[in-house]
Amino acid sequence: MNIRLLIFCLFLVIAKANAQQDSTKATLTLAAMYNSNISYYGQVTAEKYPYVLFNATLRFHNGLYFSGGGYKLLNYGSAISETDLGIGYDHDFNDKFTAGLAYTHSFFPANSPLLQASNSNNINASGAYQWPWLKTDLSLDFAFGKQRDLFLSLSNSKEIELGSIFNENNLLSITPAIEITAGTTRFYETYIIEKSKRQNSNGNGNGKSGSAPGIINGNTTETIENSTNQFQLLAYNFKLPLNWSTGNFLAEASYQFSILGNRNQEDVKHQQSFFGLAVYYQF
């Protein structure tokens, strides 16, 4: 049986087992987001790709949810850059500990310039614990498709309420967070191969994308392959989102500073900054 079909059937079994709890109540959350560059578990390409993202999530009271969305790179091509469909389940064990399991399948166009294009499937297991002074999140991701990669992320955050503006229903808050991400980077092998193909199609490798190391030199290729199989530190991320909420509406302005630990891409700066804007509305 196809592994994607098996995963989907597993979630349907979970949904049926929990349907008796209370599946009559559901919320629909719509989201729109802009970010100055796209990243994949802390990794970026030499080219910056600002993008806009749209997402819809239908969440049931029993913890089951379905999601769908996509995004468009603002400086690459005219078509949608990626679309995705997901299914997941969250469970609150108590008022402090929550765990979840989710599966997402992504659709990428041919010749996608994105690092994650080789891994169109993702299984995520996560847990969150609310301590008296901060919240700890642990996330394990298995990404697979043309390649197979494993990622582990640990984050500590603290929500700080800044008070209300205009009236008591308009609240401001910040949630500073420190995140460490580690994993394998087999996806990078496919990325440099596809990048070389795009360069050659632009004429003798002189395209806009720059050089694609490891394609011609066999020794360099072997070095990259050995490196990508290692489970290694990928990034330290420092996040500072500012949130404004009123009723069912939430707006967010965010800044993220990342220090990259992976040295595969020599033409990528190892200090990266990301700026984002997002809006959410829940029905």
Rank of each mutant, 00 (worst) to 15 (best):
N35M: 10
I160S: 08
A125Y: 10
I87Q: 02
M33L: 06
S67E: 14
E159W: 00
L53Q: 08
Q20E: 11
S118R: 06
R148V: 07
G63R: 12
P109S: 08
F60G: 00
D141R: 13
T45N: 12
A79Q: 14
F54M: 13
N18E: 10
A99L: 07
F107M: 10
N119S: 10
S67D: 15
F144Q: 06
L74F: 05
K72G: 10
L64S: 07
L73Q: 05
S106K: 15
N122R: 14
R148Y: 02
T45H: 04
K25R: 12
L74H: 04
A56M: 09
Y76L: 07
E159K: 11
S81K: 00
D95H: 10
A110P: 05
V44I: 14
T27F: 11
N111K: 14
I160C: 09
A125N: 05
N75C: 04
S112F: 10
M33T: 13
T45K: 00
T29F: 03
S139W: 00
Y103K: 01
Y41V: 02
Y129Q: 07
L138S: 09
E159Q: 13
A117V: 05
H105N: 13
I123A: 10
F60V: 00
I80W: 07
T98L: 11
F144W: 15
S153R: 14
H61G: 06
G77L: 12
H61M: 06
W133A: 13
L150C: 01
L150I: 08
N18L: 13
N62G: 04
P109T: 12
L101S: 00
N55Q: 14
Q20Y: 14
T27K: 14
S36V: 08
D95T: 13
T83E: 11
I160H: 07
T29H: 07
